[in-house]
Amino acid sequence: MPGSTGGTASIAYAGNGAWGMSLGEIMTAVRHDIPVTAVVFHNRQWGAEKKNQVDFYNRRFVAGELESESFAGIAQAMGAEGIVVDKLEEVGPALQRAVAAQMNEGKTTVIEIMCTRELGDPFRPPRAVEAGSPARQVQGLRVTHMGVAF
Rank of each mutant, 00 (worst) to 15 (best):
M1Q: 06
T5S: 04
G7Y: 09
A9M: 05
I11E: 00
Y13C: 14
A14C: 10
A14P: 07
G15F: 01
G15M: 00
N16H: 03
N16C: 09
A18Q: 09
A18L: 10
G20M: 05
L23E: 08
G24P: 12
M27S: 12
V30H: 12
R31M: 02
R31Q: 06
D33N: 12
I34V: 01
P35V: 00
V36P: 00
V36F: 01
T37I: 11
A38L: 14
V39I: 14
V40H: 03
V40C: 11
Q45A: 11
W46N: 01
W46R: 06
G47H: 03
A48G: 13
E49F: 08
K50V: 06
K51F: 10
K51R: 11
Q53R: 00
Q53A: 01
Q53W: 01
V54R: 04
D55M: 05
D55I: 02
F56I: 01
F56Q: 02
F56C: 02
Y57F: 14
R60H: 13
R60T: 07
R60Q: 14
A63M: 15
G64E: 11
G64M: 06
G64Y: 03
G64S: 09
L66I: 10
L66K: 09
E67I: 11
E67T: 09
S70R: 05
F71V: 03
A72Q: 02
A72W: 02
G73L: 08
G73R: 06
G73C: 07
G73N: 06
G73D: 08
A75M: 12
Q76V: 15
G79W: 12
I83W: 02
I83T: 04
D86S: 14
D86H: 15
K87W: 13
K87A: 15
K87L: 15
L88G: 14
E90T: 01
P93I: 04
L95S: 09
L95Y: 09
Q96L: 12
Q96Y: 07
A98Y: 01
V99T: 08
A100H: 12
A100K: 14
A101Y: 05
A101L: 12
Q102F: 03
Q102Y: 04
M103D: 05
M103W: 05
N104I: 06
E105K: 09
G106N: 10
T108Y: 05
T109W: 01
V110H: 05
V110A: 08
V110D: 04
I111T: 02
M114S: 14
M114R: 07
C115R: 03
C115Q: 09
C115A: 07
T116V: 05
G120H: 12
G120L: 07
R124W: 04
R124N: 07
R124M: 06
R124P: 03
P125Y: 02
R127C: 10
A128D: 15
V129K: 03
E130M: 03
A131Q: 10
P134L: 00
R136W: 01
Q139H: 14
G140R: 07
L141S: 02
R142H: 14
V143Q: 13
T144W: 15
H145C: 14
H145W: 15
A149H: 08
F150I: 01
F150R: 02
F150V: 03
